[in-house]
């Protein structure tokens, strides 16, 4: 999965707190094991880059070429490292 072309800043935050329009690399999944597994199976696994498109209560994110909707509560279980000044994602 895409990861290594990004220069990561040291800012870690939940996906909920990621600013709109910013991209972050997933570095930790927390919460119930079942939910974490489903996230991984859908491609939201550790080291992928995810971009927050919009949303407050419900988030709209871009993951590679897929658009993912996440509830705010779900996004709180995804810890990302914000990516700065880089392209959004790598194919």
């Amino acid at each position: 999965m895409p990861a290594n072309a990004f220069s990561a800043a040291a800012h870690r935050m939940t996906l909920t707190d990621l600013p709109i329009g910013a991209a972050g690399r997933v570095c930790e999944l927390s919460g119930h094991a079942e939910f974490c597994q489903r996230l991984r199976e859908m491609g939201v696994c550790e080291s992928v880059v995810i971009e927050k498109i919009s949303g407050r209560g419900t988030l709209l994110c871009q993951l590679c070429n897929a658009r993912i909707a996440l509830s705010d509560r779900a996004a709180r279980h995804i810890v990302v490292e914000i990516m700065q000044g880089e392209k959004r994602w790598k194919g």
Binding site: G31, F35, A66, I68, A69, L70, R73, A74
Partner: peptide, 9 residues
């Protein structure tokens, strides 16, 4: 349950 859903293009 926590929602995660893929939106079609």
């Amino acid at each position: 349950s926590l929602m995660i859903m893929e939106l079609p293009p």
